[in-house]
Amino acid sequence: MKKLAATTLLLAGLAAGANAADPVIYTTNPVPAVEAAQAVIKEKAGLTTGIITGGSGVLLRRIEAEKAAPQGDVFWSSSANTMGAFKDVLEPYSSPELANVPADLRVADDYFQPANLHVVTVMVNTDQLDGAPAPADWKDLADPVWKGRIILPDPANSSTGYTIVWGLSKLLDAETYKALVGNLVVSSSSSAVPKGVAMGEYAVGLTFETNSYSYVDGGQTEIAIVYPSSGTFTTPEYSALVKGAPAGDDARKAIDALLSKEAQTELLKVAFRRPSRTDIKVSDYVKLPELSSIKVFKIDEEEAARSRDAFLAEWAALPKAGSSE
């Protein structure tokens, strides 16, 4: 009960400052990213935005529960493989800013708008290797030596976690996949994954590049980012217009601002989010490799969305090393 009360206070505090008619954004993003986006929306669209934070699964289920009387206007952000299960409570919107986004990142009818591109990484705390070599590929993490030393966000509540385990199930053979899953500690919090590795609680975390790089940028020299040699996974993260959004056209203006060059540049600088736009060069702003130098294993986002419930049921039945808050 105390935990629930604390969450309610946090949400109320973040939503403060917005009037009833202002767009309300339900967001999975961290505070620095949210503040940067709010500033650009204010500058470009003249709008003050209310903010409600949470995990992607939690927020999307909340939008679903509120569909008879929507309380939010914009969802920002998650992957298509998670959002696809909630299309009935979202509304297509073809923002003019999508002209600057590659066609292969867009979804049919523009139900969602590509806001940035995530790359899955293996985050390693080299101080916690106990003399072992750092893993170079996914199959290395199937070795029993890693049991209980790898943390992953819960795929049932995190689009990060879902993207990772879905991709692994397609890239690896069944035996290796099950062995790797058996070594994992599953966290109920996406943010606990990079934090746990950075604090030395775990040797390895499976997380998006934006999360792992923030600790490298912060000066933690013991943190290494591994792009697995057999290929890693990329997934666009999307914004979406809530069906029946109370703010109407102002909700659409907020999405336009989120997709703008100014917003995506700021999000790259403060939150290390790779842009979805083609007119921003990543290496001009941060010390990350260009996407062209990373080996990528393509995953089918639409198949992942269609198969979500069945896949998560299979995932839940697999033995794991443990769970964490």
Rank of each mutant, 00 (worst) to 15 (best):
S283K: 11
V204E: 05
K281L: 11
A310S: 11
D73N: 15
L152N: 08
E175V: 11
D109Q: 14
A115S: 14
S159V: 06
A263H: 05
S78T: 11
K3I: 12
R62H: 09
A103R: 13
S159M: 02
A304T: 03
P194H: 03
K44T: 07
S77R: 12
A257I: 07
A99R: 13
S324W: 11
A18N: 02
L141K: 12
A65E: 09
I25G: 01
P102G: 04
L318W: 07
L318G: 03
A310W: 02
S239L: 06
L288K: 04
M83G: 00
G196I: 02
T49R: 04
R149D: 12
F75Q: 08
Y111M: 15
V181Y: 10
D137L: 08
V186E: 12
S307H: 10
E266D: 14
E201P: 05
A45L: 02
K269G: 08
P289D: 06
V74S: 04
N100I: 02
L267T: 03
N183H: 03
S307M: 11
T126M: 06
T210G: 07
I151M: 09
A16L: 15
A37W: 09
F86P: 11
Y93I: 01
Y213R: 02
E91H: 00
I52E: 14
S78W: 10
N29G: 13
V216P: 04
L206F: 13
M1S: 14
S169L: 00
G244N: 05
G200R: 06
G182I: 04
K147R: 14
D284W: 02
S169R: 12
S95L: 04
K67T: 09
S94C: 05
A156V: 11
S79H: 13
W146N: 04
N125A: 05
Y285T: 09
R61V: 05
S239C: 10
G231P: 07
A18Q: 11
G196H: 07
